[in-house]
Design a protein around this nucleic acid. Structure first.
Lengths: 67, 67
DNA sequence: TTATTTTGTCAATTATACTTGACAAAATGA
DNA sequence: TCATTTTGTCAAGTATAATTGACAAAATAA
């Protein structure tokens, strides 16, 4: 799964630590999600989408092999 | 977190077992998600949204306390 | 360059999603 | 009613998400 967290974060000029705090997760946890190391829960995806004023689908995209 | 899986499933006239197969999860796993026992991964949420031709936000809603 | 912040990553632990197998309750259909 | 399908739930196990603490690489600012 791909994500556009880094881009959305840049738009808001937020650090990983700041975003992590907003969505209630550790900085390392957010880093692992952002770098594709692991897949977040739907609650975290929804919180992130809300924080960025966007949708889960804009933030996260299934790969062709994951469809 | 609330969800509208049961309703979307009814629209398509799918059983839990059928939907579970489509998204690549066990029947009991899907049941636990549908009944709110646990929170699915974002990949599963995206697959479900795709299967239902809808969005993650339509399928899953944060409670006021989870925002 | 030097100092500071930000990011990436590791190890070890904890929490939880997801699995299979099983069985009963509930719903559906004959 | 009787049979069949569907759903809910339990237990025990596996997989993985998420945690903290730590440290170095990379980026940013002075």
């Amino acid at each position: 799964m791909k994500n556009t967290i880094k881009v959305e974060r840049a738009k808001k000029n937020w650090t990983q630590a700041e975003l992590a705090k907003v969505i209630g997760i550790s900085r390392q946890g957010l880093n692992s999600i952002e770098t594709g190391k692991f897949i977040p829960s739907t609650v975290l995806a929804l919180r992130m989408a809300k924080a960025f004023d966007t949708t889960v689908e804009v933030l996260f995209q299934l790969e062709d092999t994951e469809g």
